[in-house]
């Protein structure tokens, strides 16, 4: 027990880094994903082609490769990131692509008649988005977004590879130093707590959309 208390501060500071990375990625990637998805369904061929290419790369290659590429690769051509910035940049690029695909599907599953009836009622484009389309898209995408959010909690452990002091690294350092499994078990428990809380919040949000179909 004393041992657990003694390693907790380092684990918690690792968990704090994990959480910061997680939150910033969500806060930036979700709005960006919406914007990119609007580009994907826009009438501009060139924009669509560029965005499709970007998504193809991001979803077709491992996030680990993207992290290594940005932190170890780009400095070779003179683009240097701090560890934390490299991690955040890679996560935002990667998760924006996934979110954009989810939102694209969401926007496309709202029937065209919804836009048309808003149009004949003279709602502006923005009013239509805000009052009609976004609520319907949200309801459709929340389960898929939820999956990605849980994935993101776990994916944050990948930044281990660029030497950022997050939760997994904190646990591994303690295990290697003290030759005991306890830190790794604790790390597992902390991840479970984080994914558990995220699932709980997502269920609540999902529930708030269940009063209409």
């Amino acid at each position: 027990m004393n041992y657990i208390i003694s390693i907790m501060p380092s684990l918690l500071s690792g968990a704090k880094m994990t959480l910061i990375l997680f939150l910033w990625t969500l806060i930036i990637s979700i709005p960006l994903g919406i914007i990119v998805s609007l580009g994907l369904i826009s009438h501009f061929k060139i924009i669509r082609a560029i965005l499709k290419f970007y998504i193809w790369i991001m979803r077709g290659t491992p996030l680990l490769l993207q992290l290594i590429f940005i932190f170890y690769g780009l400095p070779i051509i003179g683009i240097i990131f701090q560890r934390y910035n490299a991690a955040l940049f890679a996560f935002i690029l990667n998760y924006t692509a996934y979110f954009a695909e989810i939102f694209r599907g969401g926007f496309q599953s709202v029937p065209g008649g919804q836009y048309e009836s808003a149009h004949v009622l003279q709602l502006t484009k923005w009013q239509t988005l805000r009052h009609i389309i976004i609520p319907q898209v949200s309801k459709i995408v929340i389960p898929s977004i939820g999956n990605e959010v849980i994935n993101l909690v776990k994916d944050t452990s990948l930044v281990y590879v660029i030497g950022l002091g997050e939760l997994l690294r904190a646990g591994n350092v303690a295990t290697a130093r003290d030759v005991t499994l306890v830190p790794l078990v604790l790390v597992g428990i902390i991840y479970l707590l984080m994914t558990g809380i995220a699932s709980f919040i997502l269920k609540k949000i999902e529930h708030s959309y269940s009063k209409w179909k």
């Binding site: 919804q114 009836s117 609520p135 319907q136 179909k213």
Partner: peptide, 17 residues
Amino acid sequence: NQITGVVFQSYELFPNL
């Protein structure tokens, strides 16, 4: 001066409202 109102074949009510 709204000239026309429309009742669509599939009504197109807003399901979220």
